[in-house]
């Protein structure tokens, strides 16, 4: 807008011109409003709940930490972080998600599921294979980085006294997944359950 449009007359004295580069943060014309009254009960309570919720979530299994161990300095703070025994073991109902999430998730691998009666037999036979396989796996994990090393997830395992609330479907049987999954990962080992005929024919990509 021109000076005329602003209604400034010619020759009128304008506010003092600023000399030099303008301040990045010019002084505020209006400050933020101060709350008029003391915080009321509701507001105080909301604050408490918020902080508690936040703390809970950060210590919960849902807070995913990067898996890398920090070999350098053992920080003092490490001692006081709740040694989440759940770290790396996400305890949810995997049947309610797309299968690939449980297959590929390292966390889900360590899942021991609840066996149903009908599968008890199957389970026993699998057990041996599985526990050996798992041991080997665990060793492997220790030495390898996460990338590229993914084994099929779900195995019916013997309940290690670790039962969980959420029922896992017993159809989390070992299946090699789709070809897509297989082709993506270089699986040197495939723990195909021989009793499981279901070699799924997935689409080839």
């Amino acid at each position: 807008m021109t000076y005329e449009q602003l209604g400034v007359q010619k020759g009128e004295v304008l506010p003092e011109r600023v000399v030099g580069p303008p301040e990045t943060y010019p002084p505020l014309e209006f400050r933020p409003v101060q709350p008029a009254q003391e915080k009321n009960l509701a507001e105080s309570y909301l604050l408490v709940v918020k902080k508690e919720f936040r703390e809970h979530m950060q210590n919960s299994q849902y807070y995913i930490h990067p898996g890398v161990k920090r070999p350098d300095i053992e920080r003092y703070s490490d001692r006081y972080q709740l040694l989440a025994s759940h770290r790396g073991q996400l305890n949810i109902n995997w049947s309610r998600c797309p299968k690939e999430l449980s297959h590929s998730s390292a966390a889900a691998k360590k899942r021991k599921s609840w066996t149903k009666k009908t599968d008890a037999k199957k389970a026993k036979v699998k057990d041996l294979n599985v526990s050996e396989a798992l041991e080997a796996l665990q060793k492997k994990e220790e030495t390898q980085t996460k990338e590229g090393v993914e084994e099929e997830g779900e195995e019916e395992g013997k309940p290690e006294g670790e039962e969980i609330e959420e029922l896992e479907e017993d159809d989390e049987e070992l299946d090699e997944g789709t070809d897509y999954v297989n082709n993506y990962f270089d699986n040197g080992d495939s723990y195909i359950d021989e009793e499981d005929d279901a070699l799924e024919e997935g689409g080839v990509f």
């Binding site: 943060y25 010019p26 505020l28 014309e29 933020p32 409003v33 101060q34």
Partner: peptide, 14 residues
């Protein structure tokens, strides 16, 4: 007064 105006961002010229 809305809380937006109780924080600097609400009055901030930048």
């Amino acid at each position: 007064t809305p809380t937006l105006m109780c924080i600097p961002c609400g009055v901030c010229p930048l």
